[in-house]
Design a protein around this nucleic acid. Structure first.
Lengths: 362, 362
DNA sequence: AATCAATTCGTGTGCGCACACAAAGGTACA
DNA sequence: TGTACCTTTGTGTGCGCACACGAATTGATT
């Protein structure tokens, strides 16, 4: 009597106990019509009583449904952060391959107004079952999310969040908190309240990203509260004129030879690190963000002291998992998922590369 | 023609292409006997050519196999680290519930010689398909792992590793590296090369764990290489006489009022943190290990500055996933899995609690 | 040529579920 | 009472796979 093995409860078990057929139970479970009130009540009661948990694998096997996921990211060429996010998503998709999940990644130009909405339109035409996107500004993003909501298509924000647009979930890092934390570490490095320079990336007269701004805000808040004696300078680079970077640094450090400590709130700390190596200046204390290959190289060379990582691979993976759980397992998902704020130096970097896993001998 | 949909390849597809029946393909895939050399070659060829990937969910559904996993841990009462490991394992088991995986956790007294082997014997009697264990000393552990190897039962080490016993895989943290990293951070806090005290836990005249010893070694190595000017003191507590802890600290700090910086390489930093709070001494710089509730409380209160975490929940989860992939998916698994060495302060602690996920408003 | 055993292979059934279809029951009206 | 129609319910089939069983083929032996 395999019925008695105290194993998992099947639809059949429910049907027997309720005195109906499996078809009726199936109809109740899926909320389909054609069930009398009395049968419905009885089945629902027994479902709850026996705490029925469907075998999602058998279910997926039988239904043979296909899921199309769409993803909308800013155009990136060679940017490790987004590459890692994509890799994480692809990896998760491949682990769910038997559920017939397909992922279609599309891009928009984050610096061109209207580009997001246009890409969003194309994305909608692909008729996705779920969407992941790195939002643009609220105004740019809104038209797309409204259409998604109309069509009842769940969407997730990655990287940065716009609460008012009500995504199913958010995956990313709290920029403000990470800046706050960075300040704690930097203030330890800045002995005797020595001055600190903030290196910034400017695009079109403004900071290149919201993240950059939020991190700087968090940073300044910590400094103001805990070590107001530290004087903060700013040094701006221009995205459109990278050829000027070296000259900008030259001029700045000629004017401020006393400054020996700096931080970037974008991912391009290697600009400074590589410069320091080039002019052979040692001991400049530098912090930055993201494990770009060039940043890691500087970290190992000693020209960057600390990096704060966002774990992009995990972010990408988690987004797919989230849609999987929502669409297929029909589980509740958490609305906010803030990645840990991890501090990385040359002493622990090895344990963060290769997705937290090492295969060689330590 | 659903055959042409460029979908996943099924056994049936292989059978048609090889001009045999699904039964024969099945026999080849599972290496069962009763297949002629010619058929075998043909099928194997086409399997490779079409890159056949079985649908593991359908496979599990059809085979209806049960898997018993066993786990052997040191006895712990109220120790958050082990509790979190168990929680991680249970969580992973529940996500694989449809694969008929059961987990049986058993315990041994890590301080009693012979206890591990005895518990190992009991564990073997439960006839497990896979094993996870926190090893004791090499000698104590060896008899059990030898029997496992004889019976071809895969086993994973968690927390600490004994390479010579050849586990299928290892999950844990590199103790030495984490001590090395801790030293980098502590040396930033110890201004002007001020002295540092190492708080230690002694059991039966020796350090209470290998981890503690390895971390301290890594720590001392960094200090020696990078800031030999820092003088290191030791202060020993005795596991068996916790009532003496306060007196021990009193005497020590009476003798060394100049010491304002300390570190523990065990998980009990709260002993010092709570003492500092009790005597209302502020500004003592303290580092420790593991996110025990009492440690977190001290962290938030400001009596512990930094904690290095081992992510026990993830460790537990990963162990189960590893056995799952090995036993059921028959994938290759990585032999060494070192968890990231994460630095935690009151500024980023919120993003590490609750398994990296927050649901409230930040 | 007949018998038997061993080898090699194909078919059928079921895993738990989704869904199409058919059957049964009920109601209204002629 | 019969017919048409709607509501409610049960049954059958297939998803991709594992495995038991039995059929076909071959070779050896009498």
């Amino acid at each position: 009597m395999r019925e008695n093995k105290s194993e998992r409860i099947r639809i059949k078990d429910i049907a027997i106990k309720a005195g109906v057929s499996v078809g009726t139970v199936d109809r109740v479970i899926h909320g389909r019509s054609g069930v009398s009130e009395s049968s419905k009540k009885k089945v629902e009661e027994i479902l709850k009583q026996m705490n029925y948990q469907p075998n999602m694998y058998a279910s997926a096997l039988a239904s043979n449904k296909k899921y199309n996921l769409a993803c909308l990211l800013p155009i990136h060429t060679q940017e490790d952060y987004w590459i890692d996010i994509e890799a994480g998503m692809e990896h998760a998709v491949s682990t769910y391959k038997d559920f017939n999940i397909r992922l279609n990644i599309m891009y928009y130009d984050q610096y061109e107004s209207g580009a997001f909405a246009e890409a969003g339109k194309k994305m909608l035409e692909s008729n996705p079952d779920g969407v992941i996107m790195a939002p643009s500004s609220e105004d740019e993003t809104k038209s797309t999310t409204l259409q998604l909501q109309e069509r009842n298509i769940p969407f997730i924000f990655i990287d940065s969040n716009i609460r008012s647009l009500n995504p199913l979930s958010f995956y990313g890092q709290s920029s403000h908190s990470s800046g706050y934390f960075a300040a704690r570490i930097l203030s330890l490095m800045a002995e005797h309240n020595e001055p600190v320079v903030i290196f910034r990336l400017i695009y079109g007269g403004r900071l290149g990203s919201n993240q950059q701004r939020n991190r700087e805000e968090g940073f300044r808040e910590y400094i103001k509260n805990n070590c107001p004696g530290i004087k903060l300078y700013e040094l701006d680079f221009y995205v459109k004129n990278p050829e000027n970077n070296e000259r900008i640094m030259e001029e700045f450090f000629a004017k401020h030879p006393e400054i020996n400590c700096g931080i970037t709130f974008n991912s391009k700390a290697y600009i400074i690190g590589e410069y320091m190596q080039k002019i052979n200046r040692k001991g400049f204390k530098l912090m930055g963000y993201d494990l770009l290959r060039r940043n890691v190289k500087c970290l190992k060379a000693g020209t960057i002291d600390f990096i704060i990582a966002q774990q992009p691979t995990e972010q990408g993976q988690s987004c797919i998992e989230c849609l999987f759980e929502h669409l297929i397992l029909k589980k509740e998902v958490k609305p906010y998922n803030y990645m840990p704020i991890t501090l990385i130096s040359r002493e622990n970097i090895d344990f963060y590369l290769d997705a937290h896993v090492r295969t060689n001998n330590i």
